[in-house]
Design a protein around this nucleic acid. Structure first.
Length: 597
RNA sequence: GUCUCGGUAGCUCAGCUGGAUAGAGCAACGGCCUUCUAAGCCGUAGGUCCUGGGUUCGAAUCCCAGCCGGGAUACCA
């Protein structure tokens, strides 16, 4: 049982004994004692003043006395104003270190047979352009969230729904057919997703030219947009595709194949993967039956033009269209279909959609509609809504080319990482392959940590002018600390020092050691909170705090060269446990840590 | 118009289930490599926590109003 739980219980007892009042455990609020005061845990006594009918100081002293007498782990206490600072015995903290160091998966709750199944949908790209920085955030969040859910004892299915059909891909197809028919990834050497993306941009350029021309000829802007030859061409392609025209379907397959091959490279570089991939071209017709059933059951209604609608005014929202007057589906219809499909394919207990906050409204409506259709899981959907990545000029737009490309960004960072490693002479003695593996790991560590350390729900700013840092609160800083710990442990091994993992009670641990052990003990708490609140940032922030604290310790206290064997052993075991915690924590963020750097 | 998210140091962000003197990193300035990895450590400087009310023993944190910014808002996904 953790010290917090023991104390919580005992404090309730103390109030009952001293003041003859029964209180709820939730009234007991603890915090970690601030550095400038002596103690480990602090009880705020103000809430109890009303019961004691005494001054805060007097109340604190009485509760402190009770705890000191009745709780073995409480060594002593002091009172500052209304704050009761409790000093926990060193032996308790040593026992905490012992239990943390003795297990291989400290802080992790492994899923078992009866664990709940969570499906996490993330990435979900369009197949008309390569992935950019916004997708990177999505992918990293989705992957990390999946790892964090697993670490909280859930079974997880990672899924990706590929948006492989629609007018956007037809635009690329049309442009290719018109202005680049001879080009392939093979004969141009351009990565498939980039090649297709180039045609998407080309389409937009030509389209704009045509609009300008039509307006000059006296057309209204609206007419010009509707009747520009390119747009007509793309629309025609969409109709042909839906009619399963062989030539169009063939072109569609070919170009999508190029894109998938490109995506695979990017996904692999990012270190993300999926257990199940859905393709919208296969699922986009699914929702229609459900909507028609809803219409039969009177959940939805039909307008005179025979379009089908949901009335959400009772929920404080508007009317929402579900089937167009020609009977075709909209985005919402498809999502109803895919949701049903997924719950049929898997016994999902919870569905999490990792999708940007611009779609908050969509998912709010989706949840309500599924509920109205009688699906139990409707209310259980969770939209993991994250903020946009903005550039100094504002939002990224693929069509206008104002995007930070995922592949380019990674390549640049690997290059910076390589140069830095070489300048610092860190990887001497490594083979070129080992060196490349390490500096790539560092580059990705920098990128991933940069993206994941900020609160997912907030918009974040990325300035391409200032490359992502490798110093300070960064991935490489944490990786560096890990490598440093490994180095010390390697040297200990070389010198024939055997670690004794069962540290004996009474080992003289200093304030610095105790503080670090306290931090180690918080790791499982951080993992749980990250899972409960769906926030990888909490794990990132925790690791940073631990690492920063360890580096201070490292500079102040010798580990390997400490002369007292007992203390040296304590510090080595502590360092090893911190290393293990860093590795586990970073794994939750999808970041690897190097043995050397 | 309505809904929603945000506003904390020059910049990027923590802290937000109310608690002690609001913290990091970057950028600036000054120190520390003959001792376990200097991608590190120490120090200096930098704040009307958007504004105004309210609740409270106590508010960056909760409530209300306003200002500024992002996003959504019935047939693009």
């Amino acid at each position: 049982m953790s010290i917090e739980l023991i104390l919580r219980h005992q404090i309730v007892q103390a109030i009952e004994t001293c003041y003859d009042q029964k209180i709820d455990q939730t009234l007991v609020q603890f915090q970690i004692t601030r550095k400038e005061f002596e103690g480990d845990l602090t009880l705020v006594v103000f809430p109890f003043v009303r019961m004691s009918k005494k001054s805060p100081e007097q109340t604190a002293i009485e509760i402190g006395n009770y705890l000191q007498q009745n709780v073995a782990e409480v060594e002593k206490y002091n009172v500052v104003k209304g704050f009761l600072n409790l000093v926990i015995t060193a032996d308790y903290w040593i026992s905490v270190l012992n239990s943390a160091s003795s297990v291989s998966d400290f802080g992790i709750t492994k899923p078992g047979e009866s664990s709940k199944l969570v499906m996490v949908e993330y990435s979900s790209p369009n197949t008309n352009k390569p992935l950019h920085l916004g997708h990177i955030r999505n992918n990293l969040l989705g992957f990390s969230l999946s790892e964090i859910m697993k670490a909280n004892g859930y079974k997880v299915v990672k899924t990706n729904i590929v948006n492989d059909r629609g007018i956007h891909i037809c635009k690329s197809m049309y442009a290719w057919k018109m202005w680049g028919k001879d080009q392939t990834p093979e004969n141009t050497g351009i990565k498939g997703d980039h090649l297709v993306g180039n045609f998407y941009v080309r389409f937009d350029q030509e389209y704009k030219k045509e609009i300008a021309q039509l307006i000059e000829q006296g057309e209204t802007k609206e007419n010009a947009e509707q009747n520009a030859p390119s747009m007509l061409g793309a629309r025609e392609m969409l109709l042909k595709w839906e009619a399963k025209d062989p030539e169009t379907v063939e072109l569609w397959k070919t170009m999508n194949k190029w894109v998938y091959k490109g995506f695979d490279v990017t996904y692999k570089a990012l270190g993300v993967d999926f257990d199940k991939i859905y393709y919208e071209s296969e699922t986009y017709l699914y929702g229609k039956d459900e909507v028609l059933r809803g219409l039969d059951e009177g959940v939805f209604y039909q307008k005179e033009d025979s379009s089908v609608w949901a009335d959400l005014t009772a929920e404080g929202l508007d009317q929402k269209i579900l089937l167009r007057s020609d009977g075709t589906s909209v985005y919402m219809t498809q999502d109803i279909g895919t949701a049903k499909e997924r719950f049929q394919d898997y016994r999902i207990n919870k569905m999490i959609y990792v999708v940007g906050n611009e779609q908050n409204y969509h998912f709010q409506v989706l949840s309500i509609l599924l509920d109205k259709l009688g699906f139990e899981f409707g209310k259980g959907l969770h939209h993991f809504s994250y903020g946009m990545v903005e550039l100094p000029q504002g939002k990224m737009k693929s069509r206008e080319g104002t995007v930070v490309d995922a592949d380019d960004l990674m390549a640049e960072m690997v290059e910076v990482s390589r140069k830095t490693s070489e300048e610092l002479g860190k990887l001497e003695g490594y083979t070129p392959e080992q060196a490349a593996e390490t500096y790539t790991m560092i580059a990705l560590g920098a990128l991933k940590y940069f993206m994941l350390k900020v609160d997912p729900k907030k918009n974040m700013l990325f300035n391409p002018e200032e490359s992502i840092d490798f110093n300070g609160n960064t991935g490489p800083f944490i990786q560096y600390t890990y490598a440093r710990i490994r180095s010390v442990l390697r040297k200990a091994d070389e010198r024939g020092i055997q670690l004794n993992h069962q540290i004996e009670a009474g080992t003289p641990a200093g304030i610095k050691e105790l503080h670090l052990i306290k931090l180690i003990s918080q790791f499982p708490v951080a993992v749980k909170e990250a899972g409960d609140s769906y926030s990888p940032a909490l794990v990132a922030n925790y690791i940073y705090e631990l690492v920063k604290e360890f580096n201070q310790f490292y500079h102040e206290c010798p580990i390997l060269i400490e002369e007292n064997n007992e203390i040296r052993n304590l510090r080595l075991v502590m360092a090893e446990t911190i290393g293990k915690t860093i590795k586990t924590g970073m794994k939750l963020l999808g970041i690897d840590v190097p043995e050397r750097m």
